[in-house]
Simulated scan of single mutants.
Amino acid sequence: MDPLYVDASGQNQDEFYESLKTKLEENHNFPEDYLYKFIFPNDNLKLTELYQIFDKIKYTISTRESKNGKYIAASMTAFVMDANQVVDLYKKVAKIEGVVML
């Protein structure tokens, strides 16, 4: 993503991730299982990219195609050590073109 990215609330990407990290630290007791949810175009390459990002982490995944088969919804529960790891994984997934992080 472009470092000049600004979301709908007016935050740039760095501010968003710093705010997310703070909220994670306040609301979670790491290490723990953390649930990630993504939607992306139904493309095996994109799914492979997602698998590669989580490759060295203990995780479970469930996927579901949209009704018309155009998109895939993926729910991943990954064992993470701290808020920094959660944010780092989100940043890596954000580089996959077309992914929506929920």
Rank of each mutant, 00 (worst) to 15 (best):
N68Y: 04
K70C: 00
V6L: 06
Y34A: 12
M81E: 06
S19H: 02
F54R: 03
I96F: 11
S75G: 09
G69D: 00
F30R: 08
Y90T: 09
E15L: 01
K56R: 13
Q13C: 04
E97P: 09
E49L: 09
S75V: 13
A94I: 05
A73C: 02
D2V: 06
Q85C: 04
L4W: 13
H28W: 14
S75K: 14
N68W: 03
H28I: 07
D82K: 01
Y90A: 09
P3T: 03
V86Y: 10
K95H: 07
L35M: 13
G69P: 00
H28P: 09
T60I: 15
F79E: 10
S66W: 07
D82R: 01
L89H: 05
H28T: 09
Y90I: 08
Q13Y: 07
R64K: 07
F38S: 04
V99S: 10
I57Q: 14
K21N: 06
I53A: 00
S66Q: 08
T22P: 01
M1T: 08
N42D: 08
T60F: 15
A8F: 11
I57A: 12
Y51Q: 03
I39V: 11
A8N: 10
S9R: 02
A83F: 02
L102S: 13
S9I: 00
E32N: 14
G10Q: 02
N27W: 14
Y5W: 08
Y5L: 07
P3Q: 06
K21W: 03
S19A: 02
N44V: 07
S62Y: 14
H28M: 13
K92L: 12
F79V: 06
G10W: 00
L50A: 02
V87W: 15
K56E: 12
T22M: 01
T60N: 15
V93E: 04
S9M: 05
K92G: 12
L50T: 03
N84I: 03
I39G: 03
Y5H: 07
K70R: 02
T22Q: 05
Y34G: 04
E26Q: 15
E26P: 11
K46S: 05
D82W: 01
A74N: 03
V93H: 08
F16H: 04
A94W: 06
Y71P: 00
S66Y: 05
Y5C: 03
P41V: 05
K58G: 13
A78R: 15
E18D: 06
D82G: 01
Y5I: 02
A94L: 09
E15P: 00
D14A: 05
S62P: 10
Q85N: 05
Y17T: 01
Y51P: 01
L4Q: 12
S66I: 02
L47S: 06
N29R: 15
V80N: 12
K70W: 00
S75Y: 09
D88H: 15
M1K: 12
F38M: 09
D82L: 01
F16C: 00
N42W: 07
P31M: 08
F79D: 10
S62G: 15
K95R: 10
P31Y: 09
G10P: 02
M101K: 10
L50Y: 03
